[in-house]
Design a protein around this nucleic acid. Structure first.
Lengths: 224, 224
DNA sequence: CTTCTATGTCACAAAACTGTGACCTGGCGC
DNA sequence: GCGCCAGGTCACAGTTTTGTGACATAGAAG
């Protein structure tokens, strides 16, 4: 685990949490002020930031806003007050979660893991539909663990279809989205491209499992 | 806004929240049992699910797990108890947030918006570095709103560099990651590709703003 | 069954992409 | 300042990709 940045001005709370989180297997760096925290974020990139709202100098909510401007790091706000308004302001500032002190280390740990898990699954670079895995980070597609080579246009078309699972997309839309063609040219372009994709990813191209033809309307991607 | 699925067995709480959320501009569908909720998730795809933990029949946490198995919809758990253990279990089950009843509608609304905003920004298909925007959904790159055409190899290399911002990546690593070349062939391949990318995205290719050369080591992508 | 139309299939030429090797340049140690 | 070497630049040919038009086929309507 890369590193938690803990920002809390109360020394006893800080060392207490630092110790507890370290015990839970996290690697923790702790600071007492917002300025130090911002420097740390700029220099290294912590995996997650736990930020007290009440800080000397720049307050936690403001630090949160500034971090947001730098990066989309997950941020958990920590507050002594149970004030609802506070919470609304904090979440509006871009915090990912909001925990009220005193907090049980076990609970904080659960929330940290929840935020990280959530982010990980949301920003996952790969989408899979049964045997078909589309790795958007590496721009690679695999079918049953065998790598499939798709050309750029084919990949773009597949991604466009996959982006709207279950939806029927018509040819004109696809021409605009994938080819930037505005003219409503009646051509076999989309069909030919779909055919090429099917030839590569469909076990039996004549009975497509992924890309379905909807006669008179267009194509629909739906997982098997 | 597409639709909130509210699951709560207590009729008065349910209608109260339904009314309040509707007033806040959401479109709400409400059910009293987990079974109905699961059916609803399967049939329509709500944008977010708000789920009471105490439900007759299948309890909320279990419903949460089952929804997770179907889809990665955002889920907010709602509980009458303030029990910490409950919360840990809920978050482990894959909930995105956890709110204790009685809850102020304004607060619930804030959390709903926070969860949605978070997910939206996390799954955002575009990363931007100053003027440079990489849209990974459409596989397009724009510089100051002008579209830049990158070839597949160039895009792959750029994505690989961008994936490790601030890190120096050496040629061997890049050859393996982008070209699948295992042989440590000393070639101008990476250099040539970097040059082509620079020619397209750097205002002054001789003084790169995005892709920096680190003599003797490799290349580093760092936002301006 | 017949006809009509939307879609599937295919081959091919034009266009784009890619890797390579040759040569140039500029930073660095001496 | 000199020489060395990592990296920059470039042109080109081999390869891949792409759009097109012609033709085949299958589903729907009558």
């Amino acid at each position: 685990m890369a590193g938690i940045l803990l920002v809390e001005d109360d020394l006893s709370v800080r060392t207490g949490l630092e110790l507890a989180l370290t015990r839970q297997g996290h690697s923790v760096t702790a600071y007492g002020t917002g300025e130090e925290a911002l420097d740390h974020v700029r220099a290294r990139r912590p995996e997650i930031v736990i930020l007290d709202v009440m800080l000397p100098g720049i307050d936690g909510v403001e630090v949160c806003r500034r971090i947001r401007r730098l990066d989309s790091l997950p941020i958990i706000l920590l507050t002594a007050r149970g004030d609802d308004l506070d919470m609304v302001v904090g979440l509006e500032a871009g915090a990912d979660d909001y925990v009220v002190k005193p907090v049980e280390p076990r609970v904080l740990d659960a929330r940290i893991r929840a935020v990280l898990r959530r982010l990980e699954s949301a920003s996952a670079d790969r989408i899979s539909f049964g045997d078909l895995v589309i790795d958007r980070g590496a721009l690679k597609v695999t079918l049953a663990n065998r790598e499939i080579h798709l050309t750029p246009t084919e990949l773009r078309l597949l991604l466009e279809l996959v982006r709207h699972p279950g939806q029927v997309l018509n040819r004109r839309y696809l021409l605009r989205a994938v080819w930037d063609h505005n003219h409503v040219a009646d051509s076999r372009l989309v069909d030919a491209c779909v055919q090429r994709i099917r030839a590569k990813i469909e076990p039996v191209p004549a009975e497509p499992v992924f890309i379905h033809t909807v006669r008179g309307f267009g194509y629909r991607f739906s997982p098997p």
